[in-house]
Computed example of a mutant assay.
Amino acid sequence: MTDKNIILDKALQLGKQTGWENLSLADTARVLDIPLVDIYQHFSQKDELVDAWFDRADRHLLSIRSGPQWLAKPPAQRIEEAVWRWLEALAEYRHLTGQMLLYKLEPGHIHLQIGGLLRISRTVQWLMEVANLRARHLARIQQEIALTTVFVSTFVHWLNDNSEQQHCSRRSLSFKLRTGALLKIWK
């Protein structure tokens, strides 16, 4: 049986060539010279490739070492570095990632949209863990709403940012986090 990461990597490569809409699991199997059942063992539908792609970004985020030097940084800086690390994992296929999201947002894909909301929530929870945010009760709810807003708006900006090294997205993220720090949201 073929490894899940090999299948994902090949699907990403093919998707970059053909566009996400035109990518099929059957084409991926054909290029890998494996039976479709090998793909089914890991991905029962094309959208699960997207989940695996974002899981990979989550794992990249979670590889940040959170020792004393990390914790000595201000919370806004930890969040910024964590968000950027997540985006960094997707950078090679940034345009394809945007196509994946558009596919999820198609009107007939309500089931994918609901899954997308859960995916955002899961990544935000990991961001909070990595950034070591410790607010409780109402302050935690406020923090989670603010971080979700910052994360989603930065992600969308980054997907469409053609400035060198997505400098505009970086500047925007930094501004939003400084604003949150002034409002004492990041604790």
Rank of each mutant, 00 (worst) to 15 (best):
R122M: 09
T123V: 09
H95N: 09
K187S: 03
V150I: 11
I79R: 12
L8W: 01
T148H: 05
I145C: 06
T97I: 08
W84S: 07
R65I: 03
S24G: 03
E88N: 00
V150Y: 12
V152S: 15
R65C: 02
E80K: 05
L36I: 10
V31P: 15
G67R: 01
L183Q: 09
S174K: 09
T149K: 15
H157E: 08
E144C: 10
V50W: 03
P35D: 09
N132L: 03
Q17W: 10
R171M: 07
I6F: 08
Q165Y: 12
R94W: 13
T148V: 04
I185Y: 10
L105S: 09
Q143N: 11
E88I: 04
W20G: 04
D38S: 15
I185H: 12
L8P: 01
Q17H: 00
D38E: 08
W186H: 04
Q13P: 06
A91T: 15
H167C: 15
L105H: 05
I114V: 14
T149S: 05
S24H: 00
A29P: 04
K187I: 00
R170W: 01
H95F: 11
L102N: 10
Q99P: 02
Q17A: 05
L105P: 05
Q166M: 11
D161I: 14
I34C: 10
A11W: 08
G15N: 02
W86I: 08
R122W: 04
Y103A: 11
Q143D: 02
N132Q: 06
D58W: 07
I110C: 01
L25R: 14
F54G: 01
W158T: 12
V152L: 13
L182H: 06
L25I: 08
L12S: 08
I185W: 08
Q77D: 01
W53P: 15
K184F: 00
I185S: 11
L173P: 05
D27V: 13
H60I: 03
L133N: 11
I39K: 04
Q143H: 06
N160Q: 13
H111F: 03
F175H: 15
N162L: 10
N162I: 07
W70H: 12
L36A: 11
V150P: 14
K184R: 09
R119Q: 08
Y103N: 12
L90W: 14
E92G: 11
D3T: 08
K4A: 02
Q99G: 00
W70V: 11
H60N: 02
L127M: 05
S153H: 12
R136I: 15
S63H: 05
W20T: 11
R30Y: 04
F54A: 01
V31Q: 06
E48F: 12
K4V: 03
E48A: 15
L62R: 01
D9K: 14
M1C: 02
K46C: 13
I141V: 04
L71V: 02
I64C: 01
E88H: 01
